[in-house]
């Protein structure tokens, strides 16, 4: 199978208003396979959003290459097929809503890329169905909760039928219920629709749902592996300015107190280790 996204020696240097250079990514090499669920973690300024913006050609490498579905994102003619393949969902739901009625908002992107009229309605309906917002098709987005607005934003991206969706801290502004809704929606897109997911987050309880975790540090990939491989290295994760999920942190502290425990990531695993009778 071909990777859906590939970074080859990808570097990115920003030049700001005063002509100061700022190298945000250095020599990134990465392959993402179709259907994978990747979480990207890393401290503020480590380059997560800069990397993600390369995946749908909002940015292009200043050195090296970024390939999406085998197409070089730096080539002008590839812009549309690349954006068709990779959709983006951002942090603030309010900034992503454009229309006064939910179904119009979801249709907006389709109209923009010139999808013929009769095709629009079924695609909008299917997208709303997937995010569980069918009942709200005629509602005004500004009256919805943050989690609902964020699901509308996801529906807008879904209607374009991308093979891959990049989420840049999609739950940062949401309440606990909204956060659960989005996490469930993302898992559903990945497991049922086989959509490739790239999920940037500072919340480690969300990151452990991924197949693979990429930890960035100062513009490069510092750690890579399954949630278990990454989050059982508690001290190393801390040194990167990150933290582990609660159960892993608790297990680590108990270990340091001299009590032997197996590698632990989830609540269930901690329960099993501490209450072996059951």
């Amino acid at each position: 199978m071909e990777p859906i996204i590939e970074a080859r020696h990808l570097s990115h240097t920003y030049v700001d208003g005063q002509n100061q250079e700022m190298t945000a990514l250095k020599d990134i090499n990465l392959s993402i396979m179709p259907g994978e669920f990747i979480a990207i973690i890393g401290t503020n300024g480590s380059g997560k959003s800069t990397l993600a913006r390369h995946f749908n050609a909002l940015l292009t490498p200043t050195e090296g290459k970024c390939l999406v579905g085998g197409l070089d994102t730096s080539v002008e003619a590839n812009l549309w097929p690349v954006r068709q393949t990779v959709g983006m969902v951002f942090q603030n739901p309010d900034n992503q809503i454009v229309a006064a009625i939910v179904e119009e908002d979801v249709a907006f992107g389709l109209e923009n890329i010139g999808v013929p009229g009769p095709e629009i309605r079924p695609r909008v309906e299917a997208a709303l169905e997937t995010v569980g917002m069918t009942a709200y098709a005629k509602h005004a987005p500004h009256r919805l909760s943050g989690g609902q607005k964020q699901r509308i934003a996801i529906a807008g991206v879904l209607a374009l039928e991308p093979k891959c969706i990049v989420f840049d801290e999609p739950t940062a502004m949401l309440d606990p219920k909204g956060r659960k809704d989005i996490v469930e929606t993302v898992l559903k897109l990945n497991k049922e629709k086989q959509i490739t997911i790239i999920y940037i987050t500072h919340k480690m309880e969300e990151a452990i749902l991924a197949d693979r975790i990429i930890a960035m540090n100062q513009g490069h990939i510092e750690m890579e592996g399954t949630p278990k491989e990454v989050f059982t290295q508690v001290d190393r994760i801390r040194k990167l300015g990150l933290e582990c999920p609660l159960a892993a942190e608790v297990a680590n502290a108990l270990q340091k107190g001299g009590h032997k425990l197996p590698p632990i990531l989830t609540h269930e695993e901690l329960c099993q280790a501490l209450c072996p009778s059951k």
């Binding site: 609660l246 901690l270 329960c271």
Partner: peptide, 19 residues
Amino acid sequence: SMDVPESVKLADELRQQGL
């Protein structure tokens, strides 16, 4: 739409398992 902290939930699960 609110919740309790993660540590409270984990404590409850541990209690359910007999701790």
